[in-house]
């Protein structure tokens, strides 16, 4: 185990009933590192991210955050979730709250910020993400790209140390993908540690420090993007990349 690593996955296993979704995943993620998980649907990418956020309890193995085992059964997950932001494929915004309220809710209720403090910070984030004129709108009145940027802002409002991005562009129209990816680029330039599950190969190649290929709940291969895409080692990886290339996605 690497003492320095921000997050350390050790032999992580998870099954739903008789279906083994994660079959012993081991991976160390350094501070400020960006890891892209790729693989076909059902390979376990989303489940892995949900496990890191403790939304799913793992069956065996361990997940360490700054060397602390956060996956210990029975542990209160809330203090750790605060430090790990998550953005979902379908945004999961709260439809009954305005953009501002969506972003300010957790800082107020979890961090105990005053309403003014939380709103000021939320407005600052909204401005940074180019949504200033939307602060008082409701999620359903926004485009998909705007909603996803709000969801990212909502996560950032908690000042997380790590961000988990679960196929955050998969539900977006192609012309809206760019605005969301710009935000992720900005996060990287600020040194955010990120784990992302994605189907955007071009983006994975551009933004990540390492690309990891998941197949049937195992990491088959993990390497810097230049190497990963030009010289995939594993046969499965080659097949997957071939299929993606054939589909015109690379």
């Amino acid at each position: 185990m690497n003492i320095e690593s921000k997050i350390s996955l050790q032999e992580v296993r998870k099954s739903f009933g008789s279906r083994h979704v994660l079959n012993g995943i081991t991976l160390d993620i350094n501070q400020s590192e960006v890891i892209a998980f790729i693989g076909s649907s059902g390979s376990g990418k989303s489940t892995l991210l949900r496990c890191v956020n403790l939304l799913e309890a793992i069956d065996d193995g361990a997940i360490l955050l700054d060397g602390i085992d956060i996956s210990e059964p029975g542990i209160n997950p809330d203090p750790f979730r605060r430090r790990i932001g998550m953005v979902f494929q379908n945004f999961n915004l709260f439809p009954h709250m305005t953009v501002l309220e969506n972003i300010a809710l957790a800082p107020r209720k979890v961090l105990g910020q005053s309403k003014n403090e939380a709103n000021d910070h939320a407005r600052e984030l909204i401005g940074r993400l180019g949504l200033s004129d939307r602060a008082d709108g409701y999620p359903d009145q926004l485009s998909g790209g705007q909603q996803q940027r709000v969801a990212i802002a909502r996560s950032l409002a908690m000042n997380p140390e790590v961000m988990l991005l679960d196929e955050i562009t998969s539900a977006l129209d192609p012309e809206l993908v760019g605005e969301v990816l710009d935000v992720v680029r900005e996060l990287k330039s600020n040194g955010m540690t990120m784990l992302l599950a994605t189907h955007e190969m071009g983006f994975a190649r551009e933004i990540s420090d390492r690309v990891c290929f998941l197949h049937q709940g195992q990491v088959l291969e993990c390497s810097p993007p230049a190497e990963f895409f030009s010289r995939p080692q594993h046969e499965r990886t080659q097949q997957f990349l071939q299929r993606v290339t054939d589909a015109g996605r690379l």
Binding site: L55, D78, F94, H96, L105, V110, A151
Partner: peptide, 25 residues
């Protein structure tokens, strides 16, 4: 369920999730 996931991922407790996210909707 995704609303619950959204709220819990922010660190809201299950009681807070119920009160501020689930029950109002």
């Amino acid at each position: 369920e995704s609303q619950r996931a959204g709220a819990r991922s922010l660190g809201l407790s299950s009681g807070q999730t119920l009160r501020y996210v689930i029950i109002p909707q």
